[in-house]
C-alpha cells in the first residue's frame, strides 16, 4: 500500500491555502475597515503553505526538475490546468502580500477556486469507480472551506464563522456516508468501502475532524489544537483517500459486478 505522501501533502496544503485565500479575500472585500482585519502577513502564510504544497508535489514526480513540462497539455489534461492554476495562485498569493490590493486578492481567490475545481476533476479517474464522481470535488471543496475558516481563527480570535462549521459538518457526513454507499456498489467499490471502513487511520481522521467541529463552540484557548485536530483529521482521511481507494487494475481476472 503506497501512501502517496506527496499527493496527500500537496492536496491538503493547497486546499488549506485556497481556503485561506478565499476567506482572506472575503474579509478584505466585506469589511475592509474593521480593526480585526487579518494582517497582510496572512497572505505570506497563504503563499508559503501553497509553495510547500507545490514542492511536496514535486516529490511525486520521477523527473522533478522537468515539472514545468506539466503545463504542456492544457488542451486536454485537467492536471495541466491544476499545475497552472496552483503555480499562478502561489505567485499571486505572494504578490498580494507585497501589493495588497483587493483586486489582486480577488484574482488570487478565483484562481485558487479554479485550482480546487481542477483537483476535483484530476483525482476522480475512471479507474477508481468509488471516486469517479463528484465525491473528490465535494471533499476537496469542503476541506478547503473548513481548513480556511479554521486557519482564520489562528490569526485573530473571532468566533467561528458559519461557513466553516457547515463545511466541517458536511465533510464528516460525506466521508462517512460515501464508504457505506460503496458497500452496495460494484466489486471494486465494495472493496474500497471495506478498506476505508476497516482503516484505523480513516476513523482517527474522522474523529479528529468531529472533535474540531465540536470544539468550534468552545472559545477558550487551544485554537492551535483545534486547527491541528482538523488538519490532522483531513490529512489522515486524505491518506486513506489515496492509499485505500481500489484501482480496477488490481482486480483483473476477478468479477467486476
Amino acid at each position: 500500500m503506497s501512501f502517496e505522501f506527496p499527493l496527500v501533502f500537496f492536496t491538503v496544503l493547497t486546499q488549506l491555502a485556497c481556503g485561506m485565500a478565499i476567506f482572506l479575500c472575503w474579509r478584505m472585500w466585506i469589511n475592509p475597515d474593521s480593526d480585526d482585519l487579518p494582517k497582510r502577513r496572512a497572505w505570506l502564510w497563504t503563499g508559503g503553505v501553497a509553495a510547500v504544497g507545490l514542492i511536496a508535489s514535486l516529490c511525486h514526480l520521477g523527473q522533478p526538475f522537468q515539472a514545468y513540462m506539466a503545463l504542456i497539455n492544457l488542451g486536454a489534461s485537467s492536471l495541466s490546468w491544476e499545475v497552472l492554476a496552483f503555480s499562478c495562485f502561489t505567485a499571486l498569493a505572494f504578490l498580494v502580500y507585497f501589493v495588497y490590493s483587493r483586486a489582486l486578492a480577488l484574482l488570487a481567490a478565483i484562481i485558487g477556486a479554479v485550482g480546487l475545481f481542477t483537483q476535483g476533476l484530476t483525482y476522480a479517474p475512471p479507474s477508481m469507480p468509488a471516486i469517479n464522481n463528484v465525491f473528490p470535488m465535494v471533499v476537496f471543496w469542503l476541506s478547503a472551506i473548513a481548513l480556511g475558516a479554521s486557519s482564520l481563527t489562528l490569526i485573530r480570535s473571532a468566533e467561528y464563522n458559519l461557513a466553516g462549521r457547515l463545511a466541517m459538518c458536511a465533510l464528516i457526513a460525506v466521508l462517512l456516508i460515501a464508504p457505506s454507499i460503496w458497500l452496495s456498489g460494484s466489486t471494486t467499490m465494495r472493496e474500497t468501502g471495506l478498506l476505508w471502513l476497516k482503516s484505523g487511520g480513516f476513523w482517527c481522521g474522522a474523529v479528529l475532524i468531529l472533535l474540531a467541529f465540536v470544539a468550534t463552540w468552545f472559545d477558550k484557548g487551544g485554537k492551535i489544537l483545534r486547527f491541528a485536530s482538523l488538519f490532522c483529521g483531513v490529512f489522515l482521511t486524505r491518506m486513506i483517500f489515496f492509499s485505500g481507494t481500489v484501482h480496477t487494475a488490481s482486480n483483473m481476472g476477478l468479477p467486476f459486478n
Binding site: 492536471l79 479507474s127 484501482h247 487494475a249
Partner: peptide, 27 residues
C-alpha cells in the same frame, strides 16, 4: 522523452497499462 513520471496515467488507466519505473523515473 517528455514523460516527467507524474504517474497520473497510472492512476487513471482502468486497465493498468502504464507502469512506473522507479529506476528511470518515468512511465
Amino acid at each position: 522523452e517528455t514523460c516527467i513520471g507524474c504517474q497520473n496515467c497510472v492512476r487513471s488507466c482502468p486497465y493498468g497499462a502504464p507502469r512506473y519505473s522507479a529506476t528511470l523515473g518515468k512511465v
